[in-house]
Amino acid sequence: MRLTVIGCSGSFPSATSPASCYMISATDLNGKTWRILVDMGNGALGVLQRHVKLEDIDAILISHLHPDHCIDLSGVHVAVKWDPRGWNKPPIPLYAPEGIHEYLLNTHGLTMETSMDTEFTFHEWQAEQPVNIGPFTVTPYDVIHPVVAPYALRIECDSDQGHTIIAYSGDTDSCPGLVKAAHQADLFLCEAAYQEGRDDHLRGIHLTGKRAAEAAKEAGARNLLLTHLPVWNNPETIRAEAETVYDGGIGIAEASATYVVHPRPQHIPAHTTTLKVIGKRL
């Protein structure tokens, strides 16, 4: 699998990155390349078009209904519905928490009578119920965040390169669902919006670098890629927190970087890193 970071800024776009949006791609056993998006935070839609044509997106997955993770779906609606050249593909499959259709309608002042069914095929997550999208199997897990039905996502892939697993935290504090989602993951893409010592009074909302690393260690994840850092976080401070408890590969997500995620060979220790940055488009 390949992970391209479209946006990774925490809570709102920074001067250099949109909010949360990630593209995962893989080639199936028949030679077809599939591309799925994970979250569509504010600012993501513009940068996304530097990397892929919108009609080449096979599905969109949303972790939870906060604007920094889903609001640019509103722009996707416009791109699909109002392009005068036409949209020559079926509606985009959209997997999200309950209430996603009403949420998007409200962003345009529309009602269910209007509907967005011509732009999206709506699917609502059911906790720990996997869905299949091409070579991907995606399983949502309940996590802790102050919004209705937040999820971490476990994305497994059987491709021409073997079986690989990417786990994505969404937004959460420490909880069992996070560890389940990241179990034996080849790459754990995990938020770290808070900082030890500064934000200790805030619980049930976000992780620190240390708490993200504790989850990665408990899950046996092979690589930890820290993301969702707001502009006031020093990335090296957050990385240093993670290094105190986790000895696998640790990185800080970078906007427009692409990471190759390889299967876990049988003969290497669980925490041996094979995370590789293969390029960054500016």
Rank of each mutant, 00 (worst) to 15 (best):
G31E: 08
P97V: 05
L207N: 14
F12A: 15
L105I: 07
H228Q: 13
T111A: 11
G248V: 07
K180H: 15
A185E: 05
A192M: 01
D28L: 07
S17Q: 02
H183T: 11
E102Y: 01
S63P: 00
G109W: 13
E156F: 00
L94M: 04
H123T: 07
G31M: 08
H228W: 01
T27H: 01
K32M: 08
N132K: 13
G279V: 04
T227V: 14
R239I: 03
D200K: 06
G31S: 10
S74A: 15
H163M: 09
Y103E: 01
D186F: 10
H183K: 14
Q266M: 12
H201T: 14
L110V: 01
A255Y: 06
L65T: 03
L282V: 08
T237Y: 10
G209L: 08
A59L: 02
I92E: 09
I24A: 02
C21P: 00
F122G: 07
V52W: 03
Q195D: 06
R35E: 01
E236S: 13
M23W: 00
R198D: 04
G134E: 06
P269Y: 04
G86N: 10
S9L: 03
Y259N: 10
H262K: 14
H51D: 04
P97R: 05
H123N: 15
G248M: 04
H123C: 01
M23H: 01
V5A: 06
E124H: 10
I133L: 09
L178P: 07
R2A: 05
I71P: 00
K210M: 14
G204P: 09
L61N: 03
T107L: 14
N30Q: 14
R222E: 07
P90Y: 08
I144D: 14
H206V: 04
P235F: 12
A213I: 02
I238K: 01
L104H: 06
G220Y: 08
G249N: 11
W125H: 09
C21F: 00
I250T: 10
A149T: 10
I62G: 02
